[in-house]
Design a binder for these strands. Structure first.
Lengths: 333, 333
DNA sequence: GCTATAAATGAAAGCGCTTACATTTTTACT
DNA sequence: AGTAAAAATGTAAGCGCTTTCATTTATAGC
């Protein structure tokens, strides 16, 4: 692999000049520039970005932490970020934390060690203190789907509470009075907030919420199935079921079908996230739109603005959840 | 951020010794080792992996190229690879090529520039010659879902032709005689192979295949919808439809429902890939199992074996597609 | 206790770049 | 043409680590 040294030799200039034309951050006469470019082309020169990073303490790459590398939610988030950054010539390094504190930390430290210029974190398990410490250390980062008051200018958030509220309100408006709720893992901030919204809507309608109406799932399809079974086994009466995400909702739907329960006639279902599959399910799923793609984009923009000094971008950190009514929920008769 | 120099100073030893205990690749007396470890802990030392890479020409990271960062197929592939490698202390850097030659090349060169120890490529658009050239350059890599004869020991493949054959054979066995086919983009090797398998099965059953029975989609849901419309508009008669992947199959299914066509009673559908959603669709989708998760794992194992000298792994590069019969296909009466 | 050998440690030269500073060349003006 | 300032280029010192080779220290055998 050709190095900058060989280029400089072939072009008959110094290392510094070659470096200058590469980064084009200083004036080089057109003539020498051409000589250098020719030499590069001739040698098939590719700068060694590791060496560049070490020398410049800059990597032109931003690190991303997601919980999982699969699934529609994170898929869209990663796509949005990568597209936006690549368009500006920045690279994306992705790691996963599996919602586990140790692994999230490891991943973050790895990204820092890789000299990422900034991080975009979907950090669920790591403590607020750790994130504050990151700020102390001077690490540039942005948080997706996590709100910390003292870090609020770094948070790209959706109002999950409001989303939970909307979902439940929708069912109440349809006349449902007996609801059950399949939540996400309650140690997660978003799962808590969504549940809080649910309770709030119930409360405003003067409907009591008891522990018996709650099943704590894990955001995966299978726990939707389990949740439905759980309520059924216990003889819980309900005409509608609110799920804290679409994947669990699709699990509920699929299990209901196995059991001969007709959706939405006998059971209304509402999800959360509006993942791509929500509109391909049968019946199509009523859900809360989580604009994760746009939020990913926004996170990237925010980095471009603060770290890479791109001026002409507008950063709006607050996103509003919207109800998306489809066919899985109908009037209770 | 503490550097190795400060550690060596605090521990009262040389740089070399600190490096030795970090990599523990040379004997260091227990006493000094402890001094160094203490110093590291005290300073919260984290090695700068950029510097490590530059010095050692090794990065302990492997680069992955996928077509898209979203979607169930690539999600599973990335997860499998990352999990396997992380378990061995290796890191994963992921890039996407969007099935575009220029972007695939860019991504590959980026990964090489980042001094990845090896690459795992789902390269669709790049030429065979380019891949051969990579080998010439001494780049370590493995190909997923692409077969090149002279690189066969680097290919982790599924027999797509055989998969296409099985899908169609299944429908023929069910008595269907009028089939149509929604293919993937035909410039892609896998789309071609699947179609070839389809034709072969038809041929063995003495059924002619005409251009009118083919719609070229793009592997996305929406082109399933478009495909169904296409055949319908043209007045094509068919009792079953073979789709080159599950996403298009789910598009067909969803469009059929909109049009009041009952699946499977009036139309049998078979997909390909067996993505997670296939079993959550209604009706559940008959498909060909593509063990992408296992193939991802295998790709990672192969790298562990050849590049990181992990001995106790068995690499089986050939995977066999299997028919997964569910409810979207039934006997033709 | 003394030497021969092995084990542990240190010194220093890179890895391929960037960049502050020094030097040379060009340009503009009198 | 001669000078001062500006522009272009070169020199060389790092960035934080690994690794070869040299040196020192410990171990064992007599």
């Amino acid at each position: 692999m050709a190095t900058i040294y060989q280029v400089s030799e072939l072009a008959g200039v110094s290392l510094a000049t070659v470096s200058r034309v590469m980064n084009n951050n200083a004036k080089v006469s057109d003539k020498t520039k051409q000589k250098v470019l020719d030499a590069m082309a001739q040698l098939g020169y590719q700068p060694n970005s590791i060496a560049q990073s070490l020398a410049s303490n800059r990597s032109n790459s931003v690190g991303v932490l997601v919980s999982e590398l699969h699934g529609p939610f994170f898929g869209d988030m990663m796509s949005a970020i990568e597209e936006t950054l690549r368009y500006e010539g920045k690279h994306t390094i992705i790691t996963s934390g599996h919602s586990d504190e140790k692994r999230e930390k490891e991943s973050i430290e790895f990204l820092i060690g890789r000299k990422c210029d900034a991080l975009i974190l979907h950090a669920e398990a790591v403590s607020d203190e750790y994130l504050l410490e990151l700020e102390q250390r001077g690490i540039e980062f942005v948080l997706i789907n996590r709100y910390i008051e003292s870090l609020k200018n770094r948070c790209i958030c959706l109002d999950n509470r409001q989303g939970g509220y909307l979902a439940t309100q929708h069912l109440l408006n349809l006349g449902h009075r007996q609801l059950v709720y399949v939540s996400g893992p309650l140690w997660k901030q978003d799962a808590q907030a969504r549940l809080t919204g649910h309770k709030q809507a119930l409360n405003e309608a003067n409907i009591a919420f008891t522990q018996a109406q709650l099943f704590e799932g894990d955001y995966r399809q299978d726990s939707g199935c389990k949740g439905l079974d759980y309520f059924l086994e216990r003889g819980q009466k309900f005409t509608a079921i609110v799920c804290a995400n679409d994947e669990m909702a699709s699990g509920v739907m699929s299990r209901a079908r196995q059991l001969g329960i007709v959706v939405p006639d006998e059971l209304s279902i509402v999800g959360f996230d509006n993942i791509i599959y929500a509109s391909y399910l049968y019946p199509t799923l009523t859900t809360i739109d989580y604009p994760i793609y746009d939020m990913g984009k926004m996170a990237a923009y925010s980095i471009l603005k603060t770290v890479y000094n791109k001026k002409d971008v507008q950063v709006t950190p607050v996103f509003v959840p919207k109800l998306k009514v489809r066919n899985s929920s109908i009037q209770h008769t």
